[in-house]
Design a protein around this nucleic acid. Structure first.
Lengths: 353, 353
DNA sequence: ATGCCTGCCGTTAACGTTATCGTCAAGAAA
DNA sequence: TTTCTTGACGATAACGTTAACGGCAGGCAT
C-alpha cells in the first residue's frame, strides 16, 4: 500500500535550471564539479542551489551512475558490544571513503540473515559486510552471493575447507594462548567449555588441544563440555565440570560470557575464583573489566577487525577483476587479570569438594 | 570521479516482460501484488523472476513512489553500549514496519552531526532519529529540520524551553532517585559530579538539588564538581572532592563511567567503596555489573527508548498533518548494588581483590 | 441490438539525475 | 580567406520503476 506522502516538494536540478535559464545539464555539471562549466555559471548555480535549499537526490543519481555509495552491514545483534565495536570500525573507514552503512540484524537466525542479504542486494548496496561468531547460513548462501559479483567480506566467519573473502582473528592462537597461560601457571587439570561447532570456537578448541599436546598433557574428554556462547550455558557447563572426578583446577571458556557463567557456577558451589579454580575467557567483552578488571581473557582488536574488513572490501571494489579471495588474520593477545592464579600445590589447600 | 562499475547486469522488470511477451507494467503489478493481474500471469511472472534472479531495484522504485523505506539514525558512537542498545530497539521496531536503517556517527561533533543529517536528507530517508547525551547541535539545526517537513525524533536530547519531538527518560527523577537512595542510607554529606551543561545531566543535577532540598539538607557548592561523562573525568572530579574539608561520604555521579572513575579515585587514595564512600551512578552500563554487579546506579530501558522513538516517528509518518510535538518520557528506577552502604557504619563488605 | 460494467492488460509519462553526443561561437592555424 | 580546435553549453536518452489513464474483450441488463 504505497501511500503517497504529500510533503513540500524538494528543489530539483530542474528548478535551478529554470530559474537561471540554463539547461539542467549545466546545473548538474556545476554541482558535480565537472570542468565543463565556466566559473561564472558555477557560482551562480551554487548560490541558487543554496537559496532553494537544494539537496541532490541520491536515488536518482545512483540510478544512472549505478553507484549507491552504500555498504550493507549484517550483524547478529548490534547491542552486543562485540559487534558494536566492529561496526564502529567499519563506519570509521567507510565514512572516510564516502560510504554510508545500511544496518541489518540477522538475530542469529540463518533465514533472517539470508533475507536481509537479499534486501540489501535489492537496495543495490555496493558491498556487503557480514559478521557473526555463530554458524549461521551455510556456505551456499555466500557461494551464491559470489555469483552476483557484489563484493562481500565475512567477519569472524569460518567455513572449514572453503576460503571466502574474510577477516578474522587467529582463533587457534586464541585457544592456544588461553590454555598455555593456564599451563604456565602450573595447572594440569585444564577443562574446556566449547562453543558451537562450525564456529570460530571450533578453532579455539583446536588451539586448546594443540597446547595440551605440545606440553605433553593428556586430553581428558570428560573435561570438555559444550555451551552456546551465553552466560547461562557457561554456568550450566561449569556445574557439570565441577561434578567430575577428579575436578579440573582450571577452565578455558570459548568466550567471555561463558567464562562469566563459569565464575557464577563456582560461586554457586562455594568455590573461590581464582583460589580454587582459574578461569580464562576469550573476547575481552566490556563487562569483564569494569570497575574491576576481573576475567582473564584473550583479546583482539574488534574495531580493527571492522576497519580491515572495509579496507579489503574497498580494495575489491576498486579492482573488481582482481577479486582473488583475500583473508586477513589478526593475532590475539592474552590479558592476564584476576580470574587466574598459580595452581594449588599438591596436597596443599586445594581440592576439597 | 564516478567510475562506472562494470559488473554483470542485474535482471530488470523489462527483461521479464520481454521474456514473457507482456508489458513491464503487468510484471510490476504481479510483483507488487496488485489485484489487477490474473492469477495465471502472476504465477508466470513470479517463476520467471526467480529464474532470472530478479531483485527489485529499490532506488528506482523509491524515485517514483517517493518512499525509501529507510530511516536515518545518528548516534555519537555505536560502540558505546548505551547507543548500541538504543539502536537495537530502533532496529527492532523499524524492521517490523519494513524500514531499514542508515547509520551515521556524529562523533560528538556538532558539525559532523549536521553534515550527517544533511547527507541523510539527500538520501531521502523518510525519517530521522537523532540521539546524544551531549549537547551537540544547537536547536536551530532542528528548527531548520522541522521546516523540511521530514519527520524526526530526538532521543535523550533536551533543549530548555523548546519542546521538539523526542523520547527521553525523566532525568530529574534520575537525579532524585540516586540522591534519595543515599539520603535513605543515612548520608548527609552528599557530593555530585555533574555532566556537561545543556545535556540531560543538567536535569539530573536539578533532581539532586530537589532531593536535598526536600529532605532539608543544605546544598554545599564545594561538593559539586563537573566532569565530561568519561571515566577519567570522573576520577579527576572525585580526587578533587576527596580533598575537600569536610569530605563527602557519598557521591552521585551523573553517569556510570564517571561513577566508575570515582571508584578508581577512591582506590587511588586508599579509601574503600562502599566502606568509606558510597557511590551511585546513572545509566546502568554493561560494564558496571559483570561478573560482579557492583556500581549502584539508576537504570532505564534503553532498547525501550529506541523502540518508543521509532513508534513516535512512525505515528508522525502515518499522519503527517497530525504533527504536533510529541514527547515521551520514561520513568527510571534504582538498582541498589554494592557501591553503596549505610553511612558512618563499617558494613562487613570486604573487598574481593 | 445497445449500453454499461468489470477484469485484465498496455501505453505513456513521469521520478531526478547523468552520459553521450551535438551545436555553436570564438579564436587559432593554415 | 578557410579550416580546425576548443570551451561552454543544450537536447535527448537513458537508469528501473510505478501512476494514471485508456483500450478491449466478454458478460449482463435493458
Amino acid at each position: 500500500m504505497p501511500r503517497a506522502a504529500r510533503r513540500k516538494k524538494e528543489a530539483t536540478i530542474v528548478d535551478i535550471a529554470r530559474r537561471l535559464r540554463v539547461s539542467a545539464m549545466t546545473v548538474s555539471r556545476a554541482l558535480t564539479g565537472s570542468s565543463e562549466v565556466s566559473e561564472k555559471t558555477r557560482k551562480r548555480v551554487l548560490r541558487c542551489a543554496k537559496e532553494l535549499g537544494y539537496r541532490p537526490n541520491r536515488w536518482a543519481r545512483s540510478l544512472v551512475t549505478q553507484r549507491s555509495s552504500i555498504l550493507g552491514v549484517v550483524v547478529p545483534d548490534i547491542a552486543h558490544s562485540y559487534f558494536a565495536e566492529i561496526t564502529r570500525g567499519i563506519e570509521e573507514v567507510a565514512d572516510k571513503a564516502g560510504y554510508k552503512l545500511l544496518l541489518c540484524h540477522s538475530c542469529l537466525d540463518p533465514r533472517k540473515e539470508e533475507a536481509e542479504i537479499e534486501t540489501l542486494l535489492g537496495t543495490r548496496v555496493e558491498g556487503l559486510l557480514v559478521a557473526s561468531e555463530q554458524p549461521l547460513s551455510s556456505p551456499e548462501v555466500f557461494l551464491k552471493l559470489q555469483e552476483t559479483r557484489i563484493p562481500f567480506v565475512l567477519i569472524d566467519r569460518f567455513f572449514p575447507g572453503r576460503e571466502l573473502p574474510s577477516v578474522r582473528v587467529d582463533d587457534v592462537a586464541v585457544g592456544r594462548l588461553a590454555t598455555e597461560c593456564l599451563i604456565e601457571l602450573g595447572h594440569r587439570r585444564i577443562a574446556h567449555i566449547r562453543g558451537p561447532r562450525l564456529s570460530p570456537a571450533a578453532l579455539r578448541y583446536r588451539g586448546y588441544l594443540a597446547a595440551l599436546r605440545k606440553h605433553g598433557i593428556p586430553v581428558n574428554s570428560e573435561w570438555i563440555v559444550s555451551g552456546s556462547f551465553d552466560i547461562e550455558s557457561g554456568r550450566q557447563a561449569m556445574l557439570k565440570l565441577l561434578d567430575k572426578q577428579p575436578r579440573p583446577t582450571a577452565v578455558f571458556a570459548a568466550n567471555d560470557p561463558m567464562g562469566i557463567g563459569a565464575v557464577y557456577a563456582c560461586r554457586d558451589r562455594g568455590l573461590a575464583v581464582p583460589g580454587d579454580v582459574s578461569i580464562v575467557g576469550a573476547g575481552n567483552i566490556e563487562g569483564a573489566h569494569h570497575p574491576n578488571p576481573f576475567l582473564t581473557t584473550v583479546d583482539w582488536p574488534r574495531a580493527e577487525l571492522g576497519r580491515a574488513a572495509v579496507t579489503v572490501l574497498l580494495a575489491i571494489l576498486a579492482n573488481p577483476e582482481h577479486q582473488h579471495t583475500r583473508v586477513e588474520i589478526f593475532t590475539p593477545r592474552l590479558l592476564s587479570r584476576q580470574s587466574t592464579a598459580q595452581a594449588a600445590q599438591r596436597g596443599g589447600k586445594g581440592a576439597s569438594a
